[in-house]
């Protein structure tokens, strides 16, 4: 029988040292390399990484670790990490920002830390600086250019397009547009009234099912199918996804149908208790500044929110874009998600 030379104390000491070293090393490294974690939409990862984050590195010397997901997932992560947040900054849609703000997960920003906050268009700063819109994308019907441009939202219900239409899940914010359009087509009421006619929306949307190829939660996969021609249209898709692909040569385009399109403001906010709060202010200020907004406007054909930045060519007349009651959407979306699964699919 061998005699072991491992002593409990030395084993515990070595283990303890290992744990301390492994836990402390990343924070030391982070401190040295000036990193910041931003949570945001997966669909924006490509153009953020290629065009925005290099500017942040150049201006602020900061390396961004980007966690791309959908807004609801990022909200869940924020709730789970609220005691020790991992994100410093989040980029999310307004209805999710409402939930994050209600849940006490955001830290208000002000012009003292974020000077560009004072230069934004009216309505772009929410709840006394709880979050701000850094861009205003717009939504319509994304289509494959080989299959012809749609004229009206009702074209999605055309029987000739059986199995060729994709719509976003109600889990994604843009999923609401199809429910709203369906309510509008069913009731004949203008968007401002139809947005509350959810029963009618579900009824009409049910008749779209034979035409559906897929209901997506993963936007890049849906765009891929549209580019390949497997799908002819994605209802409720927005400019930041579709027009970036068009600019890269993909055979896709975005059309605002006769009934109108939708405004879809994107927000940026500072996470309450998040790491590197001063750096978070600087990053948010850069997102609200003219330089990054000009890049985003050119890349994604979104309207900037900084009054000093020019609205890009090709951006639709803001009067043709409907902005819904986001507070109502935020409040009701959970119930709609239940109905979506049980009644529609």
């Amino acid at each position: 029988m061998y005699k072991t030379s491992i002593h409990r104390r030395s084993l515990l000491k070595a283990g303890g040292a290992l744990v301390v070293a492994s836990l402390s090393a990343p924070s030391i490294l982070r401190a040295q390399t000036k990193e910041i974690v931003i949570g945001g939409p997966a669909g924006a990862a490509k153009y953020f990484t290629e065009s925005v984050f290099p500017l942040l590195k150049q201006k602020l010397g900061v390396t961004v670790l980007y966690e791309g997901s959908n807004s609801a997932t990022n909200l869940q992560k924020m709730q789970a990490d609220s005691a020790a947040p991992k994100f410093s900054v989040v980029v999310m849609d307004d209805p999710i920002m409402i939930k994050a703000a209600d849940g006490g997960l955001l830290m208000p920003i002000s012009t003292s830390g974020v000077p560009n906050l004072g230069k934004l268009v009216a309505g772009a700063v929410h709840r006394d600086g709880m979050w701000a819109n850094y861009q205003r994308p717009w939504a319509g019907i994304a289509y494959n250019t080989k299959s012809g441009a749609p004229k009206a939202w009702a074209d999605m219900w055309d029987k000739a397009r059986a199995g060729k239409i994709i719509i976003p899940s109600i889990q994604n914010t843009e999923g609401f547009w199809n429910l709203l359009i369906a309510a509008h087509l069913e009731t004949g009421k203008p968007f401002a009234e139809a947005q509350y006619e959810i029963d009618a929306g579900f009824k009409k949307l049910k008749s779209l099912v034979p035409n559906l190829l897929n209901v997506y939660t993963n936007a890049p996969q849906a765009m891929n199918l549209l580019e390949q021609g497997e799908a002819q249209m994605i209802g409720g898709q927005f400019s930041a996804y579709t027009l970036t692909r068009k600019a890269e040569g993909a055979p896709v385009d975005l059309r605002i149908p006769a009934e109108g399109g939708f405004a879809m403001p994107s927000g940026i906010a500072k996470v309450k208790g998040g790491p590197a709060p001063e750096l978070a202010d600087a990053v948010i200020d850069a997102f609200l500044g003219t330089e990054i907004q000009a890049v985003l406007a050119a890349k994604a054909v979104v309207a900037p929110t900084n009054t000093d930045a020019a609205i890009p060519a090709g951006y639709p007349d803001p009067a043709s874009l409907f902005a819904p009651d986001w507070a109502f959407v935020a409040k009701e979306r959970g119930k709609w998600a239940e109905r979506w699964t049980t009644e529609l699919l």
């Binding site: 899940s169 559906l212 897929n214 209901v215 997506y216 939660t217 993963n218 996969q221 979506w340 699964t341 699919l345």
Partner: peptide
């Protein structure tokens, strides 16, 4: 299932 059939097969 999420990528190959999506929400239509919960």
């Amino acid at each position: 299932p999420t990528l190959l059939i999506g929400e239509r097969y919960p």
